[in-house]
């Protein structure tokens, strides 16, 4: 029996057993009628909803809106985060001054800022972008700080021997040595920014975006539309992650197989 597990096609087939069973169960629920039929929409209607949304261009619009929000927030929050992390790691004064404030603010659950930001900025794109940027900001600060403070002294000694200026020291030693951890921070930032994008879109429920589409579909009790949006969200999230992992691999190609 366990021989089966060693054959790739068999493994794929085994992996499909549970999802297929769930789909059958779901389909059965949808035909049971009554109150449950509202939630358990027939699978056929999910496909129809997909075709409809994709055909009208609605799905593409929403996907692009979500994607650009997530990427813009990642860039804004990531750049600010790496900058602050690096400055905190190189300046004791800034570390002492800003560090405690950063750690205090970070304790508030990210989306807990929404009511406050909603009051200040309304529930438009500005408010969403601020939350998404904040989501990307936290992990990049932390990891850049760790990365810079943990650069090995033996490398800094080499810089001293060859008379590096402080700019050279930063550009040729500190930054590349910290890069693996900085990129770990950006990887986390990507995941958080993605969650924050979907979350703010659902919660603020205005404008376009996959989350807004889910929120609207919930109000209209359209489970088929929700499922389509979730499917696209998962695929996009996976793709973003994969693309970034490749970029990271390229930037860290000097680490070799050990990394």
């Amino acid at each position: 029996m366990s021989m089966l597990l060693k054959r790739p096609p068999a493994r794929i087939a085994i992996g499909l057993v549970v999802p297929v069973l769930i789909l059958f169960w779901w389909q059965a629920q949808s035909q049971a009628g009554g109150a449950r039929a509202l939630a358990f929409v027939p699978l056929g209607s999910v496909a129809t909803a997909f075709a409809e949304l994709a055909g009208s261009g609605q799905l593409l619009d929403d996907a692009l809106a979500t994607l650009s929000r997530a990427v813009t927030g990642l860039l804004l929050g990531g750049i600010a985060g790496v900058t602050l992390g690096v400055v905190m790691a190189t300046s004791r004064l800034v570390d002492r001054l800003v560090g405690p404030l950063y750690h205090a603010i970070r304790q508030v659950p990210l989306l807990g800022w929404l009511p406050l930001i909603g009051l200040w900025l309304g529930n438009g794109d500005g408010a969403k972008l601020l939350i998404v940027s904040l989501a990307a900001f936290y992990p990049t600060v932390l990891n850049s700080y760790e990365g810079i403070t943990h650069v090995e002294k033996r490398y800094l000694d080499v810089g001293r021997i060859y008379g590096f200026t402080s700019v050279q020291r930063f550009r040729l030693i500190l930054l590349p040595a910290a890069l693996p951890l900085i990129l770990t921070g950006v990887t986390q930032a990507l995941a958080f920014a993605w969650i924050a994008t979907i979350g703010t879109e659902i919660l603020l429920g205005s404008g376009s975006g996959l989350g807004a589409a889910m929120g609207l579909a919930q109000a209209q009790q359209r489970m088929d539309v929700i499922l389509v949006a979730i499917l696209v969200t998962a695929l996009l999230g996976f793709t973003l992650n994969d693309l970034f992992a490749r970029l990271r691999g390229h930037l860290l190609r000097w680490q070799g197989a050990s990394a």
Binding site: R154, Y155, Y162, G163, F164, L172, A177
Partner: peptide
């Protein structure tokens, strides 16, 4: 004065050429 350590201390993020060249930067 140049020095060679027991651990080579080449910067892992630079190629051999770049590692040697960095000594000439200044």
């Amino acid at each position: 004065r140049g020095i060679v350590f027991q651990d080579h201390r080449l910067f892992p993020w630079m190629t051999l050429e770049e590692n040697v060249g960095l000594a000439l930067l200044n």
